[in-house]
Amino acid sequence: MPPLTISMVTLGITLGTLMVTTANHWLTAWLGLELNMVSIIPVIAKQKHLRSTEAATKYFLTQATASALMLFSSTLNAWQTGSWNITQLDNKLSITLMISALAMKMGAAPAHFWLPEVLQGSTLATSLLITTWQKIAPITLLYMISNHTQSNIMLFIGLLSILIGGWGGINQTQLRKMMAYSSIAHLGWTITAISITPNIALLNIIIYMSMSTPFFLLLMNTSSKTLQTMTTTWAHSPTTAITLMLLLLSMAGLPPLTGFTPKLLILDNLTMHKLVPMATAMALLSLLSLIFYLRATYLLTSMSPPTTAQSTTLWRLKANHNKSTAILAPIALFNITILPTLLT
């Protein structure tokens, strides 16, 4: 991709997200989301492959549908209340439609169908962008209307996302699809908490993004795209293998790692609001996600000495591999171990 094109795409993605996060008017927020969508489509389709074209088409159709639903919801609210302010979403039908539109934009269940396919047709760098940066704008809007959201709908979407995120990831051998279902499950935790404790929901998604970013960057360094190729990581870079293992366990939410902190806070607040059955169901359904996290962790550690890998190595060490690993390892370890002490 030419440098001028890269600059324009980066500017569009950044400016679109900033427009949404600083907007007070629904039309401004809609314009920012559209700019964001138009800017990232060339990034998804930059590979000269039918899979990339299919992923870009699916992304465009889904996001355009969600944008149309969002525009209809805000117009209906303005017709009923006379206000285009984001924080004054008072019409019940508008609230339901807006939650559905934002859930579709983020990839939460039941409108999750596009996310695994789009990530599978994209590069690892684009997958990182879609699972982190692209979720900032819709989550910000959901945070801004959290006082008007209907708790029953939010709890249903959250619980369904945790179920589908865990169930869908069990059968996956492709790391990008596995991370897509991981993103859906973590979105479920965020959506569940956002109508009860918005600040903890924001903390949850920030921690997930801080864990998934070094995970994707380490996968990019080793060119690992499947569980089979991940097994050869230990033979060439034990540091990378150990860091990936700790990041997976942290995303699974095992104590005393960082990923356990927001889940504990969410379950605690659900219990305080007398939603014990909901908290119990979420804790049990998270065991589904734990299965594929532990499977990936086992494959990473099963090739440690004196065991030797039986599969052929599909990647070779890059010139800057050791240098980039030396930079990413402290960042990942900070996100795994030190962050909980800062929060407390």
Rank of each mutant, 00 (worst) to 15 (best):
M8Y: 09
V20K: 00
T22N: 09
T22F: 08
H25P: 04
T28G: 02
T28V: 11
M37S: 00
K46Y: 14
K46I: 15
K46M: 08
K48N: 15
T53P: 00
A56N: 03
S67I: 03
S73F: 03
A78N: 07
N85I: 12
L89H: 03
T96F: 04
M106C: 11
A111Y: 05
T123E: 11
T131Y: 08
Q134A: 02
M144C: 08
N152R: 08
N152I: 14
G158F: 13
G158M: 07
I170E: 10
M178D: 05
Y181F: 10
S182L: 06
I184S: 06
I196N: 11
T197F: 12
T197W: 02
N204R: 05
F215H: 14
F215I: 13
L217H: 08
N221M: 12
S224K: 12
L227T: 13
M230T: 13
T232S: 15
P238C: 01
G259I: 10
K263W: 01
L267R: 12
P277N: 10
S289L: 07
S289C: 02
L290Y: 04
T297Q: 04
S304Q: 08
Q310F: 05
L314S: 15
L314V: 15
L314I: 15
W315V: 00
P340D: 05
L342D: 00
